[in-house]
């Protein structure tokens, strides 16, 4: 059982819930947890969400509202601080990064796929790791960029995270950054060269992950250095 201690709006469609969970055993950057909601008549619905907070901090999940979803609209619109929800986790031991694994680190996010990658970026900053790290982040518009200000702050400083945005549907006036979908050509410009031994983590919708993962393989990344996590519209 966990208590929602804070609910933070990230974008009009995305919210972060900070949880206080007795007995939370700690998590690694990239892991997820299961949320279970129970209606008064006992009906239950369960979903998995990536943990957004870095190891050592209380678990936080960042949820995007899917319009026809069953659980995400409740978590984004209804839940408030003080509410209690059941959680289980952390889960998963594959899609994880820690500074000892080295780098360079390439994070490629599509939409709310940025969440587990943010846990890695936050860990890297908290641990003062100097592993070179680059985030390529595809969003629909500037308003849809999750963690926008914090990403700006993570990019500052001598060993800052390099952040490259691409905005695929709408761009602010004067936008000089990328404005197209991530494909092999864009990866060729942004990704670390394959010879660097970079470790890539890719998270986003299926078609996005499919395009990025095969693009990286085409650029010479060995398959075992491209870890993927995908989400469909699962509500």
């Amino acid at each position: 059982m966990a208590e929602v201690v804070d609910a933070v709006a990230e974008t009009p469609r995305v919210r972060t819930l900070v949880l206080a969970a007795d007995g939370w055993p700690g998590h690694r950057a990239g892991q997820h947890l299961d949320v279970r909601l129970t209606a008064p008549d006992g009906y239950q619905a369960q979903r998995s969400y990536s943990v957004a907070s870095p190891p050592g901090e209380p678990p936080a999940i960042t949820v995007e509202r899917l319009e026809d979803g069953e659980v995400s609209p409740f978590l984004v619109d209804e839940v408030r601080a003080g509410d209690r929800i059941e959680i289980r986790g952390p889960i998963g031991g594959w899609f994880v990064w820690e500074p000892a694994l080295g780098g360079p680190l390439l994070l490629v996010a599509g939409g709310s796929g940025v969440v587990p990658l943010m846990a890695m970026a936050r860990l890297r900053a908290a641990a003062r790791s100097d592993v070179p790290a680059r985030l390529l982040y595809s969003s629909r518009s500037w308003e849809d960029v999750i963690y926008r200000e914090e990403l700006g702050a993570l990019a500052d400083g001598p060993a800052g995270l390099e952040v490259v945005h691409t905005l695929t549907r709408a761009q602010p006036d004067g936008w000089t950054g990328y404005a197209r979908r991530v494909d092999e050509a864009l990866l060729h410009e942004v990704a670390w060269p394959a010879e660097s031994g970079a470790q890539a983590f890719v998270c986003g919708p299926t078609a996005f992950v499919e395009a990025v993962a095969s693009g990286l393989v085409a650029l010479g990344y060995p398959s075992e250095r491209v870890k993927t996590e995908r989400f469909g519209a699962t509500g």
């Binding site: 993962a213 095969s214 990286l216 398959s223 075992e224 491209v226 870890k227 993927t228 469909g232």
Partner: peptide
């Protein structure tokens, strides 16, 4: 128990498609 129906066919895998 704990499952819901989908009409789609979601994709989950740990790495690139061979």
């Amino acid at each position: 128990p704990g499952q819901y129906l989908t009409g789609g066919f979601p994709v989950l895998s740990a790495g690139p498609t061979p």
